[in-house]
């Protein structure tokens, strides 16, 4: 087994004449939480879709756990930004969480038990019999996180998961992701446009550039654990890192060249 969970080599993707990603390469060690930030149009979502096997890249390859991706990999789950569109409104919360488990086999009772367990782990015990539209936005996003967790993926992809919730809920959900990462030890790729968030949750921040998209910088984050919304954000290292990332993102419209900070 390779030490890297994910290896992206020379990944290129174009929509017609427009090249979104060009010769992008990235290594993600097992168990790491990587934040991916970049200006809009840098191909963040395309990158995630290529890894998830939803989009077949024009060139290059994505290797997951030693196997080149061809189609949707089994050991992976995605949390989308649009929770209200990603959850099925005709199913109860519990059935939404249990649905992907059909692919894993097991009896109906086992699937339901696993769904209830995942709901409890995101603080939604007792909400299983409700319908998604009866819950608040933040709770709905918790349901999609629970759905991903119940599936027990070795790689969790999150596409701007907290882009449509209010600030307080956003902080709660960031801490939820940190706790899940610590407890389950899964590898997480979190795409965000929020620079503070990328530093707060990440073990490493990857900054993407635009025209064409590619890795512009990779910054390891060495902040004291456990992270805390108040003290971590006031930490001098946090402040200097977020300034650095911010500068990189602002300048990221310029042609891509890789800078590695160690």
């Amino acid at each position: 087994m390779s030490e890297n969970m994910l290896e992206i080599d020379g990944l290129t993707h174009s929509y017609g004449d427009h090249t979104v990603l060009e010769k992008m390469s990235l290594r993600v060690p097992r168990g790491e939480l990587v934040s991916i930030v970049g200006p809009s149009g840098c191909g963040k979502s395309t990158l995630l879709r290529c890894i998830a096997g939803l989009v077949r890249p024009t060139g290059g390859r994505v290797v997951l756990d030693g196997t080149a991706i061809d189609g949707v990999p089994d050991e992976l789950a995605v949390v989308f930004q649009d929770y209200s569109r990603s959850l099925l409104p005709w199913l109860t919360v519990r059935d939404n969480v249990a649905l992907p488990l059909r692919r894993r086999g097991g009896s109906r009772a086992e699937r339901r038990a696993a769904a209830e367990e995942a709901l409890t782990s995101v603080g939604l015990d007792g909400a299983g019999r409700k319908y998604p539209w009866q819950l608040s936005g933040g709770m709905q996003q918790r349901v999609s996180i629970a759905r991903a967790l119940a599936y027990r993926p070795s790689l969790l992809l999150m596409d701007e998961p907290f882009g449509s919730v209010d600030a307080q809920t956003r902080e709660d959900l960031e801490d939820l992701v940190l706790r899940v990462h610590r407890d389950e030890g899964m590898t997480i790729l979190l795409v965000t446009h929020d620079i503070d968030e990328s530093v707060y949750v990440g073990d490493r921040v990857v900054v993407l550039g635009r025209d064409p998209g590619g890795v512009r910088a990779e910054l390891p984050v060495h902040l004291p654990a456990p992270r805390d919304q108040t003290t971590t954000r006031a930490h001098p290292d946090f402040v200097s890192l977020r300034t650095e990332v911010s500068t990189l993102v602002r300048g990221a419209a310029a042609p891509t060249k890789t800078v590695v900070h160690e």
Partner: peptide, 19 residues
């Protein structure tokens, strides 16, 4: 988005159609 969600969990074309 709903279709992509199910696809990302490995459901095939027919399953996405039915579900």
């Amino acid at each position: 988005v709903a279709k992509e969600t199910l696809r990302s969990f490995g459901f095939g074309k027919v399953a996405v159609l039915l579900r």
